[in-house]
Simulated scan of single mutants.
Amino acid sequence: MTKVLVIEDQEDIRSIIVEMLTAENFYVIDAENGQVGITILQKEIPDLVICDIAMPKMDGYEVVTWSRENPETEAIPFIFLTAKASQNDIRQGIELGADDYLIKPFTRAELLGAITARLEKQEIINRQTQKRINTSYSYLASTIRNDLNNPLNYITSISEKLINEYEFMNREEILKIIKEIYNLSKNCQDRNLNKL
């Protein structure tokens, strides 16, 4: 279930948003100001934040700034709700890290549309990130296999030579091959320890 944090100081507006989102099967947490919102953000990581701008104790700009400066919350989609509709207000919110901006009064469709768009974008980012992680993991696993297989292939080859030809080799040749096997084995072991 998608978890949404609603930070809004006007209780009637906050209640309406909570009811709307609960009816749409969102798990909703609400806060009456930015300070309480940040306390909640420190304890529970929501999938999306809806936040008013003009609030007592701590405004929405401070909340989004705090959110973007913390690794646990920096990527959470953030939607501002506000009666401030000037281009400067919108620009300031976007520059601080807000992903969207709804101007009061807004409709149910506008709110749900903004939430859906932000969550879909976040899902795309998550899929792309997972794809990059998988690609990096595959490359790393392949590199480690190759690093291990190359010396092991050589060890197998010279061991086989020793097994097949030891009767025709003198003591020095046998000792040389054994030392080579030992050194290659030791190098493989050291490499594996360094990768851990």
Rank of each mutant, 00 (worst) to 15 (best):
residue 33 N to Y: 11
residue 173 E to I: 02
residue 134 N to F: 15
residue 66 W to K: 08
residue 87 Q to Y: 09
residue 151 P to Y: 13
residue 31 A to P: 02
residue 17 I to P: 00
residue 191 R to L: 00
residue 45 I to Q: 06
residue 38 I to V: 14
residue 128 Q to C: 01
residue 31 A to M: 11
residue 3 K to G: 13
residue 111 L to T: 08
residue 141 A to C: 01
residue 85 A to H: 15
residue 74 E to D: 06
residue 99 D to R: 08
residue 165 E to D: 14
residue 29 I to G: 00
residue 181 I to R: 05
residue 72 E to A: 11
residue 11 E to V: 09
residue 30 D to M: 03
residue 43 K to I: 05
residue 100 D to F: 13
residue 184 L to N: 00
residue 126 N to W: 14
residue 103 I to K: 03
residue 6 V to H: 06
residue 148 L to Q: 10
residue 73 T to F: 01
residue 90 I to G: 01
residue 37 G to D: 01
residue 168 F to I: 11
residue 13 I to P: 01
residue 84 K to W: 14
residue 149 N to I: 15
residue 25 N to V: 02
residue 37 G to P: 01
residue 56 P to G: 15
residue 69 E to C: 10
residue 126 N to H: 14
residue 24 E to Y: 01
residue 132 R to H: 07
residue 31 A to L: 00
residue 68 R to I: 15
residue 150 N to P: 10
residue 38 I to D: 11
residue 142 S to V: 02
residue 66 W to R: 00
residue 54 A to M: 07
residue 50 I to C: 11
residue 81 L to P: 03
residue 164 N to V: 13
residue 49 V to Q: 04
residue 145 R to I: 12
residue 116 T to I: 04
residue 189 Q to G: 00
residue 182 Y to L: 05
residue 41 L to D: 06
residue 57 K to V: 13
residue 19 E to Y: 03
residue 95 E to H: 09
residue 9 D to F: 13
residue 61 Y to N: 03
residue 82 T to E: 07
residue 55 M to N: 03
residue 80 F to Q: 04
residue 34 G to C: 05
residue 74 E to R: 04
